[in-house]
Design a protein around this nucleic acid. Structure first.
Length: 424
DNA sequence: TCTGGGGTCCTAGGACCC
DNA sequence: TCTGGGGTCCTAGGACCC
């Protein structure tokens, strides 16, 4: 029996790296990327990290950025999504099986590949860099949790490791476990860290020494599995199948506070459109929708209100019109006069596969002509860009639209925004 | 003025059944 | 003195992830 080997490949400062690929002039300039509405910092290039905290408010640090010569970008998810696909397709070609874990991370199965695995790692790293311009780090170990930790080590000691770390050797593994604070372990968040602190568990090593069963009784099975994985017992496997989502969410903060119902109705309609698009994209129908609305939650001076409501649909459907109708009815119920609203959310729940659900004998079903209409809608929006066809009530430019003052071009997805190179 | 958006899994507790 | 017990399904909420 061959021992399983897992790799975790992770793009360094992914959003910042994407921006940098298309701005060679910023090769040596620190970069930060901002959240939607240019609210706070969500990504930093390595050279920006010493100067900018994660989550720092843009309006508060504008001066600091300027002083340190740091360049800020609004987030450009179209660009990052496209770059991610390019990176992932290289990994998929290089490894027998992969699991795309997030926009910038993937697990890969390295079981049985020819030694030394570390040099395979370095080859993949070089290939991704050469073909996409994105730097990646790679952690190699006998479980997914350990591979994540090895990857964290590759990042932490970038200079010494060149970004590839193999900790299959128990001596190296234990050395790393002792060096890593427990909150670096995958699955240990702030709450768990606090609990563990109270039990004198401070490093990954301390956690690995605990009795798994005791932790399961005290907390839950997730912690139990984490402990076993840290000890090298694989409890988690590579999940290459892309399972359809069990819930679909479209939620966004408004570009400014909204007090009146009509612009909120517009925003919610457009969120519902987007959610329904995702729903059809994975061939699902939904039976219920939740719409929720809230004021700002952070500013103590603001009067707070948050409310949401579940709406039943007449039958399992992927019809944007029905979903919008349900959501609008719900919105009227949760909306109250007199508040400054900051954010709304549309959540599609109770999803089932289009062809795999058993219709209720007496309940109505989605008519066939709806399918044709929705496919036409999706085809047009795919070809000409999202929002080409949308309900007439959505005004442009929208009052509630996101603030993105520092947005980079859609370099890879719109012909007019392609980079231009000139020979001298 | 100003703090992202989109998910998953697990557990506890209530409703309901026999 | 003294609540039946065990199972399933559903929902809300917590914790975590990137």
């Amino acid at each position: 029996m061959v021992e399983p080997v897992y790799a975790l490949i992770d793009c360094n400062s992914f959003y910042a790296s994407c921006e940098r690929v298309f701005r060679p002039d910023l090769q040596r300039t620190p970069i930060v990327v901002l959240s939607n509405n240019d609210g706070c910092v969500i990504a930093r290039s390595a050279d920006a990290k010493p100067f900018v905290k994660m989550g720092a408010l843009f309006h508060e640090i504008r001066g600091d950025l300027k002083r340190h010569g740091i360049v800020a970008f609004s987030s450009n998810y179209v660009l990052y999504g496209d770059m991610s696909e390019r990176v992932m397709s290289i990994l998929e070609a290089r490894f027998p099986s992969t699991e795309i874990y997030s926009i910038d991370e993937a697990f890969a199965d390295m079981t049985g590949l020819p030694e030394p695995l570390e040099s395979i790692g370095r080859q993949v790293q070089a290939e991704v860099k050469q073909k996409t311009g994105i730097p990646v780090g790679i952690g190699i170990a006998t479980t997914k949790t350990l591979a994540k930790l090895a990857n964290a080590a590759a990042k932490r000691w970038q200079k010494q490791t060149g970004g590839v770390v193999d900790i299959r050797d128990p001596v190296r593994r234990d050395k790393l476990l002792k060096a890593m604070p427990v909150e670096e372990v995958w699955g240990v968040g702030p709450r768990m860290r606090a609990h563990l602190e109270g039990m004198q568990i401070r490093t990954a090593w301390d956690l690995a020494q605990m009795d798994a069963w005791t932790l399961r009784k005290r907390f839950n099975v997730v912690v139990e599995k984490t402990v076993r994985e840290l000890r090298g017992v694989a409890c988690l496997e590579i999940e290459s199948e892309i399972e359809p989502k069990q819930e679909i969410c479209s939620s966004r903060s408004f570009g400014k506070r909204l007090r009146e119902l009509p612009p909120i109705q517009e925003a919610v309609t457009s969120y519902a459109m987007r959610a329904a698009e995702k729903l059809r994209n994975q061939q699902s129908l939904c039976r219920r929708v939740r719409v929720s609305l809230r004021t700002g939650m952070f500013n103590p001076a603001e009067v707070k209100y948050a409310n949401g409501i579940l709406c039943q649909l007449p039958y399992p459907t992927d019809d944007s019109r029905l979903i919008i109708k349900a959501v609008q009815a719900g919105l009227k119920q949760v909306f109250r006069e007199g508040f400054s609203y900051a954010k709304a959310q549309v959540l599609l729940l109770d999803l089932c596969h289009k062809n795999e659900y058993t219709p209720d004998l007496f309940a109505p079903e989605q008519p066939v002509k709806t399918e044709r209409l929705m496919s036409a809608l999706d085809a047009i929006n795919n070809r000409w860009g999202r929002g080409t066809l949308q309900p007439g009530r959505i005004a442009k430019p929208a009052e509630w639209a996101m603030r993105r003052e520092l947005l980079s071009p859609a370099y890879t997805t719109r012909w007019p925004e392609l980079m231009v190179a000139k020979a001298r």
